[in-house]
Design a protein around this nucleic acid. Structure first.
Lengths: 293, 293
DNA sequence: TGACAGTATCGGTGCTGCTAATGTTACCCT
DNA sequence: AGGGTAACATTAGCAGCACCGATACTGTCA
């Protein structure tokens, strides 16, 4: 019973799928299937009920899952401790981020990080917000970058940035010439919105409601990139973080109009409570926090 | 990195020797040496300083040792939990006992145990008292049987038996005819004693001192078997648990004279605190506690 | 400075665990 | 119902690696 098989089993349970677990661990579905069977043979007990889809976890399987988690966390803890002794900053920092933190920002952070710590690797996954929390909870990432962060019993939050939200629209749009946008000017506009279940959507909705504005939701997206495309094509207006539009503003494909009643979006960093971070992850966290807005 | 290698490393550190660790894990010295080197190569850090004898453990090596212990304990805990779910009583119960608990007693217990739980194995090691504590502390035994038990921060004690101590001597000895032995009758006798560092020796010494008796220590042993031989040959007298002499009394090779001022020896069971016992070990513990004196 | 006990190294071997291909089964959908 | 699809199981064959035995090296005694 190797650590690979522990990690594999954990991932199989978390993804509720042998194949996905196999993929996450870089082995074939066949190998994963054999690994689980070997496990069940050794322990003489069924761990997973694979006669149903998606597969279900038996009582014993849950025990083994907790066991895997504990073992793998202890392993991470050891590795963190070890790096404290050797003084080396190495290993992979896994970061899960929402799409809208700005890929270019992270890219420059990544460059600085690999410059400072050449032995460390940085791996960033861009996910939907709920997936970011999930990734941190399920040990697939040391750090998570989210907007409107919320802590839980197992997760702790560090404030990171406050981003100014602005009216975003095509330069050719009627409202593009305004120096400042009052709420009433949005009344009845076609609106390019975030998906209903994203936190940012809730906050923008509340902002509009509080200022007595009704807009017409023209389209919905779960990522800023697509929204910017739609706006550039004149499909409507939106409210987006200004930082995310700097490129398009410079290129002249989009315009940003400051809001008279300001609205900002807080970004935060989530991590697991009482989990010593590997040295490399600690350093990346420092880098994040020292980076100017 | 397999569990075998964790167990191996733990044993190497505990025994301060690669060869002994290898022997404990049933592999060759060569394999053990290679395993440690592989470990150091993977972690990129020296764990053991083998340029000195006995070998010494580096800072990183200590961290890894703690890690091994934690992992292996978690594994045991899982196995115990699993047996709770399956209801099976299987696996090996490892018991460490002092020589003087009585091998024949344990043998009959063992017979009863394997009768009740045919899937479980019982393994008993007979050791010197300090080794019994060590074996339990270092996860080489689930239960320890000792006299004059003492708990520690990591060990908890369950009282087991109170054994009557009697004057033990050859039937041909001058004192053998007594119905009861007062303390004064021991004055000046040749005494067959336990080794100085055994707890039972301290207690017998105190008994003699408190009753103002001086004896001449004729010989010392660390096990009751040898003492009985010496007594049968008329080499002196001793104070021993009666239970341990039943066979010799029946055969007429030894006599037991009750002490006027009674002395008893408490036997106890030691186990690690906050460590769920495997189901098989739990059952053996039940068996121990229900066994009549 | 031998003698020894312990550790490192080396070549050969067997077993475990992987892949790729194929067979089987649960669930969905009209 | 009854294909269709996506998942899991099975099989054969191969590759790597952990093991062993033998031997060489190295600390630590006397």
């Amino acid at each position: 019973m190797t650590f690979e098989s522990l990690s594999l089993y954990r991932d199989i349970v978390q993804t509720r799928s042998v194949s996905r677990g196999a993929a996450l661990n870089g082995i074939s579905q066949s190998a994963a299937s054999q690994s689980v069977q070997e496990l069940e043979r050794c322990l003489q007990v069924r761990l997973l009920d694979r006669s149903t889809r998606p597969l279900t976890v038996t009582e014993a399987g849950k025990l083994y899952y907790d066991y895997c988690r504990d073992i793998l966390r202890r392993k991470e803890q050891f590795e963190a401790q070890l790096q404290g002794v050797t003084g080396r900053v190495a290993g992979t920092v896994r970061v899960a981020a929402i799409y809208s933190v700005g890929i270019s920002d992270i890219a420059s952070l990544e460059a600085e990080f690999t410059r400072r710590y050449p032995d460390a690797d940085l791996h960033v996954d861009y996910l939907r917000p709920e997936r970011v929390y999930e990734a941190v909870l399920e040990d697939r990432a040391e750090l998570g970058l989210v907007s409107y962060p919320e802590g839980t019993r197992e997760l702790t939050v560090l404030p990171w940035r406050e981003e100014e939200m602005v009216l975003a629209l095509s330069p050719s749009h009627a409202l593009a010439g305004l120096r400042r946008a009052g709420a009433h000017e949005l009344e009845g506009q076609d609106f390019v919105a975030f998906d209903d279940d994203l936190p940012i959507r809730q906050h923008v909705d509340r902002y509009l409601r509080e200022h007595g504005v009704n807009v017409r939701i023209a389209m919905r997206f779960d990522n800023i990139g697509s929204m910017k495309e739609a706006l550039a094509l004149g499909q409507g207006v939106s409210i987006l973080p200004r930082r995310m539009m700097l490129n398009e503003i410079a290129l002249g494909t989009l315009s940003a109009v400051p809001l008279r009643k300001p609205l900002s979006r807080p970004l935060g960093i989530v991590r697991r409570k009482q989990q010593a971070l590997p040295r490399a992850a600690e350093r990346f966290l420092e880098l994040l926090l020292e980076t100017p807005l």
